[in-house]
Design a protein around this nucleic acid. Sequence first.
DNA 1: TTTTTTTGATAGTATTACTATTATACATGA
DNA 2: TCATGTATAATAGTAATACTATCAAAAAAA
Lengths: 229, 229
Amino acid sequence: MATNVHISLKHHSYLREPEQTELGRKIISESIRLIDELGFEDFTFKKLANEIGSTEASVYRYFENKHKLLVYLVSWYWAWLHYSVNFQTQNIADPRKRLSRAIEVITTAGQDDDPMVVHIDERVLHRVIVAESSKVYHTKEVDTENKAGYFLEMKHFCHYLALMVLEINPSFKYPHALMSTVLEAAHQQLYYARHLPSLTDVVANRYEETICFLKQLTFTAVDNKTTYH
Amino acid sequence: MATNVHISLKHHSYLREPEQTELGRKIISESIRLIDELGFEDFTFKKLANEIGSTEASVYRYFENKHKLLVYLVSWYWAWLHYSVNFQTQNIADPRKRLSRAIEVITTAGQDDDPMVVHIDERVLHRVIVAESSKVYHTKEVDTENKAGYFLEMKHFCHYLALMVLEINPSFKYPHALMSTVLEAAHQQLYYARHLPSLTDVVANRYEETICFLKQLTFTAVDNKTTYH
DNA sequence: TTTTTTTGATAGTATTACTATTATACATGA
DNA sequence: TCATGTATAATAGTAATACTATCAAAAAAA
């Protein structure tokens, strides 16, 4: 179908909205490709401008710097995943099954054959997010940027999942901690499987194993009645 | 006591061993302080050299670049934590209690009043590791550096913990995945509590809460008998 | 058509991430 | 004692990065 859903963000890590213009959309789609190819450290606006046949100065009119572009991509990803999970679980009445399905969608995000948004390659974006997303909040500006709303999308999504947990077990003490751990782990385990396999037991590209591990982690914790000291 | 244990690494992210000379030790201790103050992105060898009254060129004789210095610090941290956990659990016969104690040591690492190594402020190093450690393997060179042994210390420590898990439940399917998740989560939850509190339920500086969450996560998973689909 | 907005072309600056060279200080050992 | 080697400091220099500024041309909106 290629529905072309429009994902709008709650903050302005950009100077000009990139979805609105041809150049803006090229900046987004090509930056995803280039960051995947070069890694975020070696990615520059000059190289990006060359790829899209534009100039450094023009790219700077959309984003103050490459860090803010990454913030945009990561926020877009969380908003898109939130939408996606919500869509894929809306008809599931049982909260347990809903959370189970949510974990599947989170882990396999971007593996769909049919992308939701035309100019964004969700498979490549997923690789970029797995490799680079933690860099958006591991900076000295984290508190300022948090106040500016730069991490709202992830926070909202985490809260949305935490509410599912509380539906299953209203007395569970750590719904947010559990879900932020699962969100990070879903990326980590895929990254480890590919690059540092001795840090995991799951095999690269075998998403079912990661899903199984994450479900076990989640449900044993949520179902648990005893406290550990 | 300030025992001054010597931690030696299994690889050479350095050009000259920094522990061997006065300048080398100053590079280590002051880089920890400066990275904590400026963040890794704004940290440069020029600024470091200024702080220690030396020159950029001299620092470059010890480390090829700042990334390799971070690799050194992170590896040192894991080797030290491994030593520390091993030391604090060696007299505990019950594997369950041993793992429990290990989680406590991991979470509160560096909070000891009495540092083990004179020229390293373990409290500050712990903050640096929490904020920056994931950057060492999130690069395009991860596979090359992995082959060079740059991540051995973390991998060995993870394996050591995985063996504890298997002692408790030999049929547990994901001992490495679980322990790498716990290691990362121990940092993440502290970081979230301080900077992005809505991603967690634990409160900043309340280490007991993080410990309690991590123990629950670990033991419910390890004790579990059912499989989730 | 006129006006405004967006882009391209070009230039320039401060900082970063290095490399190279030489001189000096210091310790070792013959 | 001299001779040798090693570590460091001082200085200089380069290519790339991360921007900012200006102005004209093109495109879009009024």
